[in-house]
Design a protein around this nucleic acid. Structure first.
Lengths: 80, 80
DNA sequence: CGGCCTATATATAAGGT
DNA sequence: TACCTTATATATAGGCC
């Protein structure tokens, strides 16, 4: 039903934040997975829930640490 | 104009991969930003382009390193 | 927390500039 | 590589289990 557009600001009620987090976190991880497959690239996503619980995604069955090492060791000319 | 659904597999032509990467990477970062604001949570995204160039997002103007430290130091009971 | 549902909002594939 | 267009595919709010 998606009533209205919704403003881009913190959802005040904790329960609403938790529900929206759960739904959008799944969507975010799905998108990350799709990009990693379609474009054959490495992607890592780290996300903490409103309750502080961790969710993560790392592409190509790589360990998260492997991607974070690549991040840490990347030469400057390949950074934004 | 989005002809067909498209299968979820590596796009063979390099140029097509680059174009799709550019578009979807922007969409992914936008989604990550929205979740971080709506749900007031910390999120980090690390993404390498087909050419090896880095794009990153980290919520709340936190330094990426700060989020990755939280990741590294998170107690087991808060992990999946 | 995670499914199911469905009306609406959003993202996106191509093509061209 | 970025931007514009537009037809279509996908994501999602809110309700309810």
């Amino acid at each position: 039903m998606n009533r209205g557009k919704g403003k881009l600001e913190k959802i005040e009620k904790l329960f609403g934040r938790q529900v929206t987090y759960s739904k959008r976190k799944n969507g975010l991880m799905k998108k990350a997975y799709q990009v990693s497959v379609l474009c054959d690239v490495q992607i890592a996503v780290v996300s903490f829930s409103p309750g502080g619980r961790l969710s993560q995604f790392s592409s190509h069955n790589k360990r998260m640490e492997e991607i974070l090492e690549r991040y840490a060791n990347l030469p400057d000319y390949l950074r934004d």
